[in-house]
């Protein structure tokens, strides 16, 4: 008898019991999941980040510059008292400032310029016929961008283009929805398979 499988099976059933309605078994499992997940991430963060990146290099390799992130991290504890709370703004300023500084060129390159460059291409093939797929992509990108342009009222040509953009957006949402359903369904099949074969041993 594998106690691990029995406990995993009972906890799986407790979570599934929410499908009937909110009940104590579900609440108990949910609370346990929250506690155990936080505990797990605490241990992993302590081992992989604080020990490996901070305390070991600081104490054994004498990497003194690491005192800076340590001091910034300690300032975060200032949040627990009203008088020291403003101290926590300093590490937040470092994170926000450096994140914003890196985001400007990175976002411009990866999100904007690369996407525009992939969209702009030859619209006529070597045989002289129009490339329907590339034209669809170009029209789709332009009209979808028009849909998200709110500085002018969507009337006339702008309104027409925005309406075309809606169809492209709907095709994107439909495809994304299809993939979401499939990923959830495959996880559900996995859990039901576990319950039937490993836990209840009804199937092989």
């Amino acid at each position: 008898m594998d106690w691990g499988v029995i406990i995993a099976g009972l906890l799986t059933l407790a979570i599934f019991s929410f499908l009937y309605r909110d009940n104590p078994a579900y609440k108990m499992a949910e609370s346990l999941l929250i506690g155990v997940s936080i505990g797990y991430f605490l241990v992993i963060t302590w081992t992989n980040t604080l020990m490996d990146l901070l305390f070991v290099p600081l104490t054994q390799d004498a990497k003194w510059p690491l005192i800076i992130p340590l001091a910034l991290g300690v300032m975060m504890f200032g949040r627990f008292h009203k008088r020291t709370a403003p101290l926590s703004r300093i590490p937040i300023a470092v994170l926000i400032g450096s994140g914003a500084g890196v985001a400007i060129p990175a976002m411009l390159e990866a999100r904007t310029l690369r996407q525009i460059s992939a969209t702009v291409g030859p619209l006529v093939t070597e045989s002289g016929l129009p490339d329907i797929s590339l034209i669809a992509v170009l029209v789709g990108v332009l009209t979808t961008l028009v849909y998200f342009y709110f500085s002018r009222e969507h009337k006339g040509a702008l309104g027409g283009a925005a309406k075309v953009g809606t169809y492209f957006l709907m095709s994107f949402f439909g495809t994304t929805f299809g993939y979401t359903v499939m990923s959830r369904m495959s996880t559900l099949i996995g859990r039901v398979e576990f319950l039937l074969s490993d836990f209840l041993r009804l199937t092989q």
Binding site: A110, T112, T119, A136, V137, V139, G140, T144
Partner: peptide, 14 residues
Amino acid sequence: PSMAARRAILIGIG
């Protein structure tokens, strides 16, 4: 069409 909308959203996010 789906990728076109995705691309426009990414440009907007950027």
